[in-house]
Design a binder for these strands. Structure first.
Length: 211
DNA sequence: TAGACGATAGCCT
DNA sequence: GGCTATCGTCTAA
């Protein structure tokens, strides 16, 4: 799995949000094991967008968004949830794509364990357990849930997403989602800029956070 | 340094 | 569909 090149993050924030659908999120845990998921829901946030954290300028907590493209911007909201974003504009311009939902793929049982603690029974067959975890929307059908399942927290703020050796990156698969399979709609949970159609999701995916 | 406010999720009816 | 836990961050004073 090759990481997306940095140029991917410079095609424009709206285009990048759309293009990330079908791409693979790769997480390498401390013990070397890898979990992957297919991105099925994203939102775009731009510098002139009142809903964007950077709208009012540079602050200590949003400074990663003002930095180089292809890096992770992590923010906390409601005091308890982490949200994972990819920076999608050149240094000095603060724009990002929020990853709202993924479909667990490789090693889904690790995500299960991270979310619920040890699974009720230790699986003898990874494939069977992965099938179970795939069917369970509770793992990754929302921005706060997927960071919990992937063990992604504020320590990942600023992580370079273009390094295949890193603990977190976006991989380029062969899953191109056709336009007919994509729904473009308004964003979730915001009050300002609420009418911008800057949310994208895969229509058929059961892991989309909300329709 | 106090007060207000979230790019949510989960539980309740 | 409604309610709210929970706390980091920003803003104003």
């Amino acid at each position: 799995m090759q990481p997306l090149a940095r140029s991917f993050y410079l095609q424009g924030t709206l285009l990048a949000a759309r293009a990330l659908l079908g791409k693979t999120l790769v997480r390498r845990f401390d013990d070397g094991r890898i979990a992957t998921g297919r991105i099925v829901e994203t939102e775009a946030y731009t510098q002139d967008d009142p809903a964007c954290h950077a709208f009012r300028g540079l602050t200590k907590s949003n400074k990663t968004m003002w930095g180089a493209p292809g890096h992770a911007y992590i923010h906390i909201n409601y005091g308890l949830h982490y949200c994972l974003n990819a920076v999608t504009a050149p240094e000095g311009v603060a724009e990002a794509v929020l990853i709202r939902a993924i479909e667990p793929q490789e090693n889904a049982r690790l995500l299960w364990r991270n979310t619920f603690g040890e699974p009720p029974e230790e699986p003898t067959d990874d494939g069977a357990f992965d099938t179970l975890a795939r069917a369970d929307r509770r793992l990754t059908s929302g921005p706060g849930k997927l960071t919990r399942a992937l063990k992604v927290d504020r320590a990942f703020d600023g992580t370079d997403l273009t390094s295949a050796a890193g603990a977190l990156f976006f991989g380029d698969g062969d899953d191109d989602v056709p336009d007919a399979a994509v729904v473009t709609t308004t964003r979730i949970g915001i009050t300002k800029g609420a009418d911008f159609p800057w949310r994208f999701y895969v229509r058929a995916s059961p892991f989309v956070s909300r329709r």
